[in-house]
Design a protein around this nucleic acid. Sequence first.
DNA 1: GCTATTTGACCCGG
DNA 2: CCGGGTCAAATAGC
Length: 362
Amino acid sequence: MENGLNWEQTLINELAQGMELAKQLRAHLNSTSSAESREILLQRILSSYEKAFMILKWSRSIGHPQLSAPITNLPESSISGDGSPQSEEFDRGFKDQQDQNDVSKKRKVLPTWTGQVRVCSENGFEGPTEDGYSWRKYGQKDILGAKYPRSYYRCTYRSLQNCWATKQVQRSDDDPTIFEIIYRGRHSCNQTPHTAPPPPPSSSSLDKQESKPKNNPNNYQQQQQSQNMFFNFRTSSRVDTDDSDNRDMASHFEFPSTSSLGWNNGENNASFAFSTLVSDSILESCCLPSFVSPATSETSYFPVPPCQVMNGFGMVHSESDLTDIISSNTSATNSPIVDLDFSIDPVVQDSHFPFDNPGFFN
DNA sequence: GCTATTTGACCCGG
DNA sequence: CCGGGTCAAATAGC
């Protein structure tokens, strides 16, 4: 652990620095500062995150017990490899298989991660419509204290491919342009968009009042397109771990590769700010775009900047301690989830820090 | 006619 | 008992 403290501290420092720099960059974005200065800041941010990433990789490679242990110990029950449902639904489904008579709807804490999507419709854009997956709405509920109802979606291929991923979309009371999305379970279906990166769990259909795209199951184009949109979103992640069972998880930082950056065509600069929070465990790696974090119930939050620019990610602002985040987050590879086949393009897969990608932020 | 959405009822956990 | 999540019949759209 001694060692752990050292690298953790370093990691924290790097991340903190990156956050600070990102803040500065944000300030620059609003001002008339030169592109040059922004570039410099970007470089520094990239550098900081790159270091942090290296540290994480390093720690993983040496098999830091702290990080790897929990991961490997994750109960299969909560995650099942690929297609198994992790959610309560999983429970249900599982039971059904075992005992058709047991219709229990027992609810279970599942790994979930949430995201926030900001929709700037000033430009006429309605909002993020897809996150690369096809979802089918199965319910809507008024939530106590919330102005807007919460919508419940599940993967269109739930029965066909036994995909138990679900998500909840809730419009923010304060800022109607923001939708908070909570993802549950991981996709086990084959709808991964080719171009796509791990879809960040993202947004998608909004409430009925919002524009709601129809998901056509066989429509990959649409999906791909949406995926691209993703990149336009800013993503931030946060992990909420409330599940005591999975205290640590691996984290992954995946960012869209540059290729997608081009997406933004200026015309409608619709921009969305998208942030994802990952929670609990095992996330579904399949779609986790962002990264994960660990820790206990704290959350790491990478807020996203307002909608204006397209790429880049905002600063990290942690509501809690970065430390928590860091301490647990690390191993991408060790992660239980590991079957992660991130389809995400490129970059991140190995040791390359995605941020390396020039263009990533632009 | 088929599939997705809507929406009230039902179920579960706290 | 209440709030949140899911089911499933009814309805809408293609």
